[in-house]
């Protein structure tokens, strides 16, 4: 599975980076979402995957070996939630920008870089 995961990571990064270079702001946001998926998959994969037992202790407080490493999971969980907060803001920012500028063409939004 590692091979597939590595390919998926590459694919998600490619798609994310490609979308970020688009002119439409929605696509850029989608690109950001893809990038955070990619990063999460990356953490998950290089944190070493273990098929089978989740990181739960049984009644006696013991664990079934082999179990998956809980730390990358916790990191990803935090990252997902943070990512959600930030993306929600970005989406609404898009909405407001669209309302104000009347387009989501980023090439139309470069007033702040002009004198």
């Amino acid at each position: 599975m590692n091979l597939l995961l590595v390919i998926i990571i590459g694919l998600l990064y490619t798609a994310g980076l490609y979308m970020m270079m688009r002119r439409s702001f929605v696509k850029v946001i989608i690109g950001l979402i893809l990038l955070s998926h990619a990063a999460n998959m990356l953490i998950f994969t290089v944190g070493r995957i273990t098929k089978g037992n989740p990181a739960f202790l049984n009644k006696d407080g013991a664990i079934f070996e082999p179990f998956s490493d809980p730390l990358p999971q916790a990191l990803i969980l935090t990252a997902i939630v943070i990512g959600f907060g930030v993306q929600a803001f970005a989406i609404v920012l898009f909405k407001r920008a669209y309302q104000t500028a009347g387009t989501d063409d980023l090439d139309e939004m470069k007033k702040t870089d002009e004198d």
Binding site: V6, G10, T45, L57, I63, F67, D69, P70, L71
Partner: peptide
């Protein structure tokens, strides 16, 4: 973008090729 994706894939491959021993995992358990 493809070059960027490839870069990240290659990095993951290299890392996966070495074993990881995390004391943290067992400590948490």
């Amino acid at each position: 973008a493809g070059a960027g994706g490839l870069l990240m894939s290659l990095i993951s491959i290299i890392i996966l090729s070495n074993p990881l021993s995390s004391e943290l995992k067992n400590y948490f358990a």
